[in-house]
Amino acid sequence: MKRVYVNEKWCLGCHLCEYYCAFASTNEKDMARALKDIRIHPRIRIEEKDGISFAVSCRHCDEPLCVKGCITGALTRKDGIITIDRNRCIGCYTCILSCPFGAVSPSEDGAIQKCELCIKTAGGTPKCVEGCPNGAIVFEERGE
């Protein structure tokens, strides 16, 4: 199962992953048009302090507390990927209460949002990975 892994050793704190993530969830072909004058709400977020930085996004846990705790059944895990059915999410934030990584966040419309490995948009390699200039975020298979 390919997953997004983050190595803070190589994270430059450039925040490009956030922008590529935000861009990926728009339907625009051009990032400038997509994100111009917009406050972005990326599903991957940089934590940074004192020269250390790293990106955090959904780990797609094998035993996902967010899915187990979801009161609507909007969060599901299929083929190792946890996705959100935004149509069913009523924004109770039980998942935010549950996620030990802080990888779930409220979205602009009240539902929650989280990394879905770009399977609902472009597919393939997630855009945060493609946009990382330094290989700090990788999408690969690792021994469990």
Partner: peptide, 22 residues
Amino acid sequence: LICKVPGLMAFSKEERACKLGG
């Protein structure tokens, strides 16, 4: 730190490596 800002930053580097790097 974690009181002020909940985040993985407050954990040790090793802990972060396993949380984020699998």
